[in-house]
Design a protein around this nucleic acid. Structure first.
Lengths: 168, 168
DNA sequence: TCCAAACCCTTGGATGTCCTAGTATATTGC
DNA sequence: GCAATATACTAGGACATCCAAGGGTTTGGA
């Protein structure tokens, strides 16, 4: 948060694990803790880049997803599945995006249970601008070496598949 | 959340990025998104394992940190720095742990601004039990290949150092 | 045909994270 | 020695996530 620590706290945790006789799981513990911390750092960068647009990452992801849909609209349950978040999280995001005039809710033409989320012209424009900034300020300066990016994609892809995210 | 998707949504997002002319940042975008999703999966596993103890990951981390402190006590600001979370998050966690009788707040002997968090005997016992379960149910079955764990530790360690987490 | 089971979205509640601001205590510098 | 600055913790607010439950809509088998 503020000043860098003199020592890596995760490496220290690993040492503690080993000292307590849990050597067998010390490495995965360290890897998992590092993933948690890395996510926190990246999320902060992303939120910082999106703040000028009045967007959060959750809302941006929904906008981006809609912008790639051919019709610019998706059922809420589909958005929930693709974003891999709980349906109530989508409800929450749509509420706020709708208040901001970036999306609309419309009834599904044939299924009365389903609600479609539709991108407004303003929403489409904002998604484009926000993506440009994210690309240049965050993704373009991730701090990962090129080959490490490939490694991450491979390792985490395998993990996600095994965790049941997709069957691909 | 429920059924596996037929296709990897992150791989699809990467294709969309490439189709829109953002090939240069498509890979890091995919890697970062994968980190976000992986964190979500792991956190759910951890929280599931800790639920029987009435603990969340945030509270567990604090208990574990205290259990490794020689005296079983740490200043709140130190805990905030080591856990790398905002001071108010520590205040929140301590409030709940204190309500549960797992930690105590005590005044710092020489600095009136500082509050020490102290592990109670119950807190120490619970930390031990929770660690055993986490080790066997989560860290021991992470789903990462052994060499991938090492790769993750290396890649994310470099990232965290560059992000200013530590100078080590 | 008709009712039970399945599915979809929303509301309400619990947690965690961060930010901003405010109070109290220490430290610094003049 | 005292005022200005820095540090430590907490209160209040905004968001996001998940879970449990409830009301409306479809589907499917008896």
């Amino acid at each position: 948060m503020g000043t860098p620590l003199p020592r890596d706290p995760i490496a220290d945790a690993r040492l503690n694990w080993e000292r307590h006789g849990w050597s067998g799981v010390a490495a995965p513990m360290a890897a998992i803790t590092a993933i948690m911390r890395t996510q926190q750092i990246l999320l902060a960068r992303i939120e910082g880049a999106l703040r000028p647009f009045g967007l959060t990452f959750a809302r941006y992801e929904l906008l981006a997803l809609l912008s790639f849909a051919r019709s610019g609209a998706l059922p809420m349950n589909k958005a929930s599945a693709l974003l891999q978040v709980h349906p109530t999280s989508v409800t929450n995001a749509v509420d706020r995006l709708q208040d901001a005039g970036l999306v609309l809710r419309s009834p599904h033409p044939t299924d009365g249970r389903t609600t479609l989320i539709e991108l407004t012209p303003e929403g489409r424009t904002l998604a484009k601008s926000a993506t440009a900034v994210l690309n240049s300020e965050v993704f373009g300066r991730s701090g990962f070496a090129e080959q490490d990016v490939d490694e991450l994609i491979r390792i985490l892809g395998t993990f996600r598949r095994n965790a049941g995210d997709f069957t691909d």
